[in-house]
Structures are given as C-alpha cells and as structure tokens.
C-alpha cells in the first residue's frame, strides 16, 4: 500500500539558504508519525513546504497518490490536509467561533454543527470562550483553538507543529491525549513535530530525526526512544 503522504527527495530553500536537503518521509493512513530535531533543523520548513511555503526546489510530495508538489495552498487544503502551524497563527481579531468557522472553509456546511460539537467535546474550554477574541486567549487556549480550527475541516491528515510549546505539563498531556483519541477513534493520520521528544516518541507509531535539513534516523517510536544517539541529543535532562 502506498502511503497517504509520500515525500521523496524533497529540497527547499529560503533564497540561498538551503533548509531541506533531500527528505524522504512517509505518513501512512491511520498513523501518527513524529519528526524530532534541534532548533533550526528544518522541521517547520518541511511542514510548510507541504503547502508550498516555500515551494519545493526539487523532489515530490504526493498525497493519496496525487502529486501536490506544485499545487496552490488552498487547493491542497481542499484535499483535507490541515495544519496547526508553528506560532499557532490564530486570527487574533476574530472570535473563537469565527476562527472555527474559518477552519471549516472547505468542509460541508451541513456538518458544521457536528464538527464544532466534536471540538468542544475535545476542548471544553473553547466552548466557554466562544465569543472571546482569539488575541485575548491564553497561550494554551490559543493552542487548543489552532488545533480545533485545523480539525474543523475534518482532515484526513493533520499536521501539528509543536502543539505542546509553552504549555503547562498537564495541558500538554491533555493535547497529546486528544491526538491519540483522534487517531484511535477516527483513524486520523497525524504528522507531529515536537520539542518534547519523549512524549512524541511514546505517542507516535513511527518517528524521524532531522539534523540540519536531512533525515538521519527513522524507526518505530519505541526503537528511537532506545537509541543512544536520540537519548543523548533529545532526551537527556528529562521530559
């Protein structure tokens, strides 16, 4: 079976700064895949290159067998790939409700009520804040909103860039639990970038390690957790 997301020999650059140097990576249907790596390794770039920001210089990106390497971002979104990007990027002058409406741009309006109910079940806090402006939410609430907004499109593949960043441990745990629930109940495929390598590798079926724009290691989550080079670089000093 071919993977849901299939990345081959992908290269991308910002001007003359090459950020991705020939990436091969797969996310299969129903899988949680995590990507770990140091600051500046190119993780966020990979997430954004899937949507063409920046455009791939070489290589291919396929989704569900279809070449999306050169597709406009909004067309890619219509294939039900959703992203909660680095820095959350919620619409700060819009209410929580409007942010979720934006997330539902590509989904059938008939399912709007169902979708929003699902998200409120996952993050009850958002329901309490429904008419509050995004910019006035706390950092954790903004993170929930960014994930909720991505889920409003009923994605087949969810890209999460550091969803636990800046969250209290308890809240981070909640978010990881939510990811697992979505994966187990709905079979949602998740591609997760995380600083918190320990939690990410425990949660994921498979993982990749990125160093300086290239994948240096890959394997099952448990495998990677045991690898001395992973432990030394990303796990020492606790979780």
């Amino acid at each position: 079976m071919t993977a849901l997301l299939e990345i081959r020999k992908l290269e991308a650059a910002y001007g003359r700064v090459v950020a991705l140097k020939g990436i091969d990576l797969d996310v299969k249907a129903g899988e949680i895949v995590t990507l770990i790596g140091a600051n500046g390794a190119g993780k966020s770039t990979l997430m954004m290159t899937i949507f063409g920001y920046p455009r791939a210089r070489a290589g291919t990106i396929r989704f569900d067998g279809r070449d999306i390497t050169a597709m406009p971002a909004h067309e890619i979104a219509k294939l039900h790939i959703a992203q909660s990007p680095e820095g959350r990027r919620i619409f700060s002058r819009m209410t929580v409700f409007e942010n979720l409406q934006m997330g539902a741009s590509i989904s059938d309006p008939q399912h709007f009520d169902d979708n929003i109910a699902r998200i409120f079940a996952l993050f009850p806090r958002l329901k309490e804040r429904i008419n509050q402006r995004g910019g006035t939410l706390s950092g954790g609430e903004q993170q929930m909103l960014a994930i909720g907004r991505a889920l409003m499109s009923r994605p087949r593949l969810l890209l999460l860039d550091e969803p636990s960043l800046g969250l209290a441990p308890l809240l981070a745990k909640q978010i990881f639990k939510a990811i697992r629930t979505l994966n187990e109940q709905d079979g949602l495929a998740v591609f997760l970038v995380e600083q918190n390598a320990f939690h990410a590798l425990k949660l994921a079926h498979r993982g990749y390690v990125m160093v300086n724009g290239a994948i240096t290691l890959s394997g099952s989550g448990e495998d990677l957790l045991k690898r001395p080079e992973v432990r030394a670089a990303y796990l020492e000093g606790g979780h």
């Binding site: 949507f51 971002a73 909004h74 979104a77 959703a82 002058r93 819009m94 741009s105 499109s153």
Partner: peptide, 18 residues
C-alpha cells in the same frame, strides 16, 4: 470573514482552503 482573515494572515488563510 475571508477578507478579514486575509487582512490578518494571508498565508494562514490559504492554508485553510481560502
């Protein structure tokens, strides 16, 4: 709403399928 979203963050708006 799409216009207001573009005002705030065009790239994010396109990521949502607009």
């Amino acid at each position: 709403r799409d216009m207001r979203a573009c005002e705030q963050d065009m790239r994010m708006t396109s990521l949502l399928g607009v």
